[in-house]
């Protein structure tokens, strides 16, 4: 049994000849909640997108549970950054969650009775059952974030990758999202979360990766959060930036 959910070797991404991510090699543990932390523009989103094959990296090898992405695609759920979503798009909460039940191998995109049950379960888990017929723009920030979490749940993936799920989300929603994620972890699923706020790291993550256009450090939260480690890794710049943003 492989005990890393994602293994990255020498991953480099360039945008128009400008380096966004410089040869990152890191292993993320399976069955834990991992935080990828760095200030804005430090390449966190780029890291996720390159790992998931959404942008093509210049170099690098990525493995999921020791396999190539193509073999485990259905096991990987991606939750995009909230600001990258078009909230005016004519789509209902239910339809977004039903995307989790899509199957590229199926010719006719039919929704089976089994799928319907799974979708309703996912909606119930994030308490959106009542709001499922709303257009997605008619929700609060926390509710919007939960829609996409429900989609990941409906996919029944064993690895959930989320980009900044706690930005623009009220405290109550943050807690309920975290509770769902912790339940998932206790069921043995792996969770990777991009996050820019250092002050809340201790409550959220079991493992953290510090990123700033290259890998700064990675390790268990308890070890990493010692002030000496942080100072050594970052100097003072990150601490300053992350508090000013939150």
């Amino acid at each position: 049994m492989e005990n890393h959910c994602i293994t990255v070797e020498n991953l480099q991404v360039n945008y128009h000849q400008q380096v966004a991510l410089e040869s990152v090699s890191v292993e993320l543990p399976a069955g834990k909640i991992t935080g990828i932390i760095g200030p804005n523009g430090s390449g966190k989103t780029t890291f996720l997108k390159a790992v998931l094959g959404i942008v093509t990296p210049a170099t690098g090898i990525v493995r999921f549970f020791g396999e190539e992405l193509d073999k485990v695609r259905q096991q990987v759920a991606y939750v995009p950054q909230r600001e990258s979503v078009d909230w005016d798009f004519p789509i209902s909460v239910y339809d977004v969650v039903s995307m989790g039940r899509l199957n590229p191998k199926r010719w006719w995109q039919r929704v089976a009775a089994e799928d319907l049950r799974i979708i309703q379960d996912a909606l119930a888990q994030v308490s959106l059952t009542e709001l499922q017929h709303r257009q997605i723009g008619q929700l609060s920030g926390g509710q919007q974030q939960r829609v996409f979490l429900a989609r990941a749940l409906a996919q029944q993936a064993s690895l959930i990758v989320m980009d900044e799920p706690f930005v623009g989300v009220d405290v109550a929603s943050q807690d309920s999202i975290l509770k769902v994620l912790q339940t998932l972890r206790d069921e043995g699923k792996s969770i990777v979360i991009v996050h820019h706020d250092l002050s809340t790291v201790a409550n959220y993550f079991d493992y953290v990766v510090l990123l700033n256009n290259k890998l700064v450090a990675a390790g268990d939260t308890k070890v990493m959060l010692k002030p000496e480690t942080l100072a050594k890794a970052y100097g003072h710049s990150l601490l300053f930036q992350s508090t000013s943003e939150s």
């Binding site: 695609r73 977004v96 590229p104």
Partner: peptide, 20 residues
């Protein structure tokens, strides 16, 4: 194919990860 086209218009990156 309307579902695929619809979801693609909404969130192409997600469908790409799923192997569409």
């Amino acid at each position: 194919k309307y579902k695929t086209f619809y979801f693609l218009a909404f969130n192409a990156e997600y469908l790409k990860v799923r192997g569409f």
